[in-house]
Amino acid sequence: MTDHAATDAALAAEIATHAGELLLELQRSGRFEGRELGDVGDARADALILERLRAARPADCILSEESADIGDRHCAQRVWVIDPLDGTRSYSEGRREWSVHVALVEDGLPTHGAVALPTRQETWRSDRPSELATAQRTPRILVSGSRTPVEADALAAALGGELIRMGSAGYKAMAVLRGDADIYYHSGGQHEWDNCAPAAVALASGLHCSRIDGTQFRYNRADTLVPDLLFAHPDWAERALAAIAAL
């Protein structure tokens, strides 16, 4: 079982990395710009990931942001949840804040995964846990740059923290894992593909990952909506949850 688990994690990392390289090459080619670049990048990265997964794991189901959900996967034990290009707007505008997500969900839980950050030449993976940096006394709180929660300023004030706006769910989650921030907070709604791979990687390294009421993430649901999330350094998790509950 251990060897199989390691293979699943390695497969996720390999595929996410290769999709990220494809996206970088496309972005640098100058053949497409703006929204067209984002659309073409989404489609080509999705095609690459689907082809590789279907070849390597033909018996598994797949849920992708960019492919039709035909409704046959929510009863499956093993489902790959992918976001071929998280942060499409950042990507299409030539910014750094985008990522590629590949995760395996087993019985509703994110067991293995990888998040590629191509502009940083990094791929974070669940089979290679990272040692967490020391939490800061003044927490750095990441929120969406385009969909900032209306209560974000109040949360920052309650925790005595600094609010930082940033694109891409995966990019933000890995910033907390890297130690560049202490909390990633979102309450504006996402879908499973936005945060499944980040959760798989972050949980493996000991970050707190949950809904903002503290309940555990569950994936491969018939409804893919994930209304809110909290990724936090464990030293800040309880205080963040208490502050959120008091808002």
Rank of each mutant, 00 (worst) to 15 (best):
S92H: 13
S92V: 14
E93S: 12
E93H: 12
G94S: 07
G94V: 09
G94R: 02
G94I: 06
R95L: 15
R95P: 08
R95V: 07
R95C: 07
R96P: 11
R96N: 10
R96Q: 12
E97P: 13
E97A: 10
E97G: 04
E97T: 12
S99K: 11
S99C: 14
S99R: 13
V100C: 04
V100D: 04
V100E: 10
V100K: 03
H101G: 03
H101P: 02
H101A: 00
V102S: 03
A103M: 08
L104S: 14
L104I: 10
L104M: 13
L104D: 14
V105Y: 01
V105H: 09
E106A: 15
D107R: 13
D107P: 08
D107L: 12
G108Y: 06
G108N: 09
G108I: 05
G108E: 10
L109I: 15
L109T: 15
P110E: 11
P110I: 10
T111E: 13
T111A: 12
T111L: 13
T111F: 06
H112M: 11
G113E: 06
G113P: 12
G113A: 05
G113R: 03
G113D: 09
A114H: 00
A114Q: 00
V115L: 04
V115M: 03
V115C: 04
V115D: 05
V115S: 02
A116C: 14
A116R: 06
A116G: 01
A116D: 08
L117P: 13
L117T: 03
L117K: 02
P118L: 09
P118K: 13
P118I: 14
T119F: 00
T119K: 01
T119E: 10
T119Y: 01
R120T: 05
R120Y: 02
R120Q: 06
R120G: 00
R120H: 06
R120F: 00
R120V: 01
Q121N: 09
Q121K: 08
Q121D: 12
Q121T: 09
Q121Y: 01
Q121I: 02
E122S: 05
E122M: 07
E122R: 14
E122K: 09
T123E: 01
T123C: 03
T123A: 00
T123I: 03
T123S: 00
W124T: 05
W124E: 12
W124C: 07
W124I: 07
R125A: 09
R125T: 11
S126M: 05
D127N: 15
D127E: 15
D127R: 10
D127H: 15
D127C: 09
R128S: 04
R128Y: 02
P129E: 00
P129S: 02
S130W: 06
S130Q: 15
S130T: 07
S130F: 02
S130Y: 04
S130K: 03
S130P: 00
S130M: 08
